[in-house]
Write a protein that binds this DNA or RNA. Structure first.
Lengths: 336, 336
DNA sequence: CTTATGTTTGAAAGCGCTCTCAAAGGTGAA
DNA sequence: TTCACCTTTGAGAGCGCTTTCAAACATAAG
């Protein structure tokens, strides 16, 4: 494979093995019904030459590219500071590597990007399937994909009413557990830092409300503040919340919780004595905050892995009913 | 277009516009020498039908795919917890979107992945170019790419002796500045949490040593500990360092610095009174640590953007001399 | 021995584009 | 008017595979 070497083609291999192009193709694609020694002869040539079929030519002929797209509809500051996506990507690539699929990344940095990329994604036959990460509720992209003839799975939202393939975690239940934990601790002035315009955020908020209701706790809208999943927004939200004097706060994400802890400390209050904090995610850094963060663990990598599994099924059996998978969460008690 | 609509081809457009396939192709590819009204007629049909050329067919015919690969050779825990990569990806995708390139992601989760993916990357004609992120010094992948006939640019390392396209930040100088800052503060028992087997880590270590030497400061190997860029490793490294009683520590990355701060606080020491800390990266969270982290700012997004620019140049003019770009860093003073 | 059935292979027709080549037409200079 | 040259267009040959179709051969059944 030096710089000079002309790339080998199927024809070359066929000639070298003394068989036809079709036969080599069959060997490569693991067809049955090939005489063992023909197969062996071809395979020998292939491994001796290090030949690999041209993926583009394969794609054109077979109408399958083996490329799947990961679409992150809003590449705002949110994603930039949330290690969530790194874990997700890690899970996804573990599986795409295993399935020998190629992963392409589509981040929308602007509305224009969104229009361009969507159009291209749907009309150029580049990708065989799509994994779409959750986004603002009203996001048009997810709605758009539904009308297209392309297999896809959605990560992290469950509100699109068409039955479609999706993976999600038990957000509502996780938030319920977190809130219940805080109540059980004897806290009475609960607060929440949530994220709206986002289904995961909504579900977590719903869980918070349900726990409050179940335990006959007062709900005070003063003790609800929104963030955008970023550290900074958690910090700002907590500062805002301080005047409402909460004695506990459930924060919809670990990064925001870390920001919130920072705001609490800076206000001269103690965690958890003055204000208890529970997060959501269980990122590695949650174990190393000051004090260590009690949080709801969600299996982010697994989310990515399951997404690829579902998509893979869909791609190979388009008649398959799209499945909805909900992964379990767990309360990780640390400080409190 | 709806689920039923058969995808349009060049031929369809040609027929609709009453011209030949070649002419439509010329319009799409913005050739000169087309009669204005022919061009207009074709363009009208294209926008009316929403036609987009099949990218795979284009690729096969033109021997260019418009896909570039981002290779992250070691997808260990390191990358999973370092927002560095998210910022890098953000910068890269901003540019790929602008150039209408597609970005594919190649993470190696194992040696086997590395072998498979490298082989496929070099032989299947899938990608037009590669962006390779820095890795262990002895990493074979970077060495391998050099022997291949594919344009690429390396991010974050400068040690491969062939002149090749690369983007990097002034690591050595950044570390020098950080160390100098600590010395100027009057600290005398300086320590470093570094990363070895990594060129960025090496360069930063070199800068540290040079500053120490320039200011006639004692160098004590006891006050050198290695981490792996992760928060956890910074925490562990600092714990180890405490017995050497440093009064200042330069930490090779912000995530590690945040971990180190945590270890210092947990040991009951004050920052910066007992131990001053300077990080490297200037991640958003550096501003929100307790106390806010003084650090060396490196333009991570820009690193990604420049990488795409360089690669784009290389892809369009293979005769172009590969350029080496070194981006400036800056000391961001916060606590101390 | 024939016929039916199955296995193994090759020829060749695409997949949907790009791009060369040559033809057709247009323009201006001699 | 003729020739040279330039602009504009279409025909058609690929790009490197997959996959259908049919041929060739083998095997089992009648």
């Amino acid at each position: 494979m030096s710089k000079q070497a002309k790339k080998l083609t199927l024809d070359d291999i066929a000639k070298l093995a003394g068989v036809s192009r079709a036969t080599v193709s069959r060997v490569i694609n693991k067809y049955p019904h090939i005489t063992p020694d023909v197969r062996a002869r071809v395979q020998k040539i292939i491994s001796e030459t290090g030949y690999q079929p041209n993926k583009i030519a394969q794609s054109l002929a077979s109408q399958r590219t083996g490329i799947i797209g990961l679409v992150i509809p809003s590449a705002t500051q949110t994603i930039l500071s949330d290690p969530y996506f790194l874990h997700l990507i890690s899970g996804i690539t573990q599986k795409t590597n295993a399935y020998a699929l190629t992963l392409s990344l589509f981040l929308f940095h602007s509305m224009d990007d969104e229009v361009q990329i969507a159009h291209s994604l749907f009309n150029t036959n580049l990708v065989d399937g799509l994994i779409i990460t959750a986004d603002r509720k009203e996001n048009p992209f997810a709605q758009q994909v539904i009308t297209q003839d392309i297999p896809f799975v959605v990560i992290g939202r469950s509100d699109l009413n068409t039955p479609l393939a999706s993976v999600n975690v038990a957000n509502e239940q996780g938030a319920y557990l977190a809130t219940e934990h805080l109540i059980t601790l004897g806290r009475r002035r609960l607060a929440i830092i949530m994220c709206d315009h986002n289904t995961a955020g909504d579900d977590r908020y719903a869980g918070y409300r349900r726990a409050l209701a179940d335990y006959d706790m007062a709900f005070d809208p003063q003790r609800v503040v929104c963030g955008d999943f970023s550290l900074e927004s958690g910090y700002a939200a907590m500062q805002q919340l301080l005047s409402a004097k909460p004695d506990a706060v459930f924060v919809s994400s670990d990064m925001m919780a870390i920001g919130a802890q920072q705001a609490i400390r800076q206000a001269g209050l103690r965690i958890p004595d003055d204000i208890a904090v529970v997060g959501f995610d269980d990122l590695p850094q949650a174990a190393l905050t000051d004090p260590p963060l009690t949080t709801i663990q969600q299996p982010i990598e697994e989310l990515g892995m399951v997404a690829v599994d579902l998509l893979h099924d869909l791609m190979h059996d388009s008649a398959a009913a799209p499945r909805q998978v909900v992964l379990p969460i767990a309360l990780i008690r640390r400080t409190t």
